[in-house]
C-alpha cells in the first residue's frame, strides 16, 4: 500500500542524499521542536520555516508533488483534531478559532513535510546507524534492522497470497472479505513465525551473537549507488 514510498535514496541523489544521516536526523528533530515552540497565531516564524523547508525540498531534488500528495493524505485527521481543539483553545478568545485551527494545521503540515523529506533522502540503514550513534539501545536498533529487512519480504508474500486468493475466488461478496482477509493474515502470521525460526537458526549457524554488523559504519555517508 505505502511501501512504494520507501525507495531509499531517490533517483536524483542530490546534496541532501549525501549528507551525514546523523546531521539530518538532528536537523529534522530540531526543526520539529522549533515548529512546536512557535506560539499560536504568529505566522512569520511559520512562514520562515515553510520557506526553509521549501528551499530544502528544492535542493534535494525530490518531486514536490510527491511530498504534497503524501502530506495531503495525512492531513484529514489533523484537520478534524484542529476543528475539535480550536474553538475552546485558551488562545482562541484572543486570536479567533480560525487562526488557532489554521496554526495547528500549518504546523502539522510543516513537520510532516520535514519528516517525509528526511525519509525520502535518507536510506533507512543509515538512519539506524545514526540512531545507534545517538545511544538508542542496540536491541531496538537491531530489531528495527530486521523489521526493515523483512518488511519487503513479508509484504511481497502478502501480495502473492492475495493474488492467489483472488484468482481462486470467482465471486466475492463484501461479507466474504472479512474471513478471507483474516485467513490471509493468519496464514501470513504462521509463515512469519516459521520464517523467523528458520532465519534465527540460519543466523546462529553463521555466528550470530546479537549485534548487527555492516561494512560501513554509521559515520559513512550514503554508499548505495543511485538506482
Amino acid at each position: 500500500m505505502r511501501l512504494d514510498w520507501l525507495e531509499g535514496p531517490g533517483s536524483a541523489g542530490g546534496p541532501l542524499h549525501r549528507l551525514d544521516a546523523r546531521v539530518k536526523l538532528a536537523a529534522v528533530v530540531g526543526f520539529v521542536l522549533a515548529v512546536v515552540l512557535v506560539p499560536m497565531g504568529s505566522w512569520r516564524p511559520l512562514g520562515i520555516a515553510g520557506m526553509v523547508l521549501a528551499g530544502l525540498v528544492g535542493l534535494s531534488g525530490v518531486a514536490p508533488s510527491l511530498l504534497l500528495r503524501r502530506i495531503a493524505a495525512l492531513m484529514p485527521v489533523v484537520v478534524v483534531l484542529a476543528a475539535v481543539i480550536a474553538p475552546t483553545h485558551p488562545k482562541a478568545s484572543a486570536l479567533g478559532a480560525w487562526a488557532v485551527g489554521g496554526t495547528i494545521v500549518a504546523k502539522n503540515a510543516l513537520t510532516i513535510g520535514a519528516i517525509l523529506l528526511f525519509a525520502r533522502v535518507t536510506c533507512f540503514r543509515s538512519v539506524l546507524g545514526a540512531l545507534s550513534w545517538f545511544r538508542v539501545p542496540p536491541a531496538l536498533v537491531a530489531t528495527l534492522h530486521l523489521m526493515y529487512r523483512y518488511l519487503f519480504v513479508l509484504s511481497d508474500q502478502l501480495g502473492r497470497m492475495a493474488r492467489a486468493r483472488r484468482s481462486r475466488s470467482f465471486r466475492r461478496s463484501r461479507w466474504a472479505e472479512w474471513p478471507l482477509g483474516a485467513g490471509l493474515i493468519a496464514a501470513l502470521m504462521l509463515r512469519s513465525f516459521e520464517r523467523g525460526e528458520r532465519v534465527h537458526a540460519a543466523m546462529l549457524a553463521r555466528g550470530w551473537d546479537g549485534t548487527v554488523r555492516s561494512l560501513d559504519g554509521p559515520d559513512r555517508p550514503e554508499t548505495l549507488p543511485p538506482t
Binding site: 536491541a139 523489521m147 523467523g196
Partner: peptide, 14 residues
C-alpha cells in the same frame, strides 16, 4: 531481536 523484528514486519504487513 529476530522474533520481534519479523513480527513487527508482520504487523506492518497485516
Amino acid at each position: 531481536v529476530v522474533l520481534m523484528g519479523i513480527m513487527a514486519a508482520f504487523v506492518f504487513a497485516a
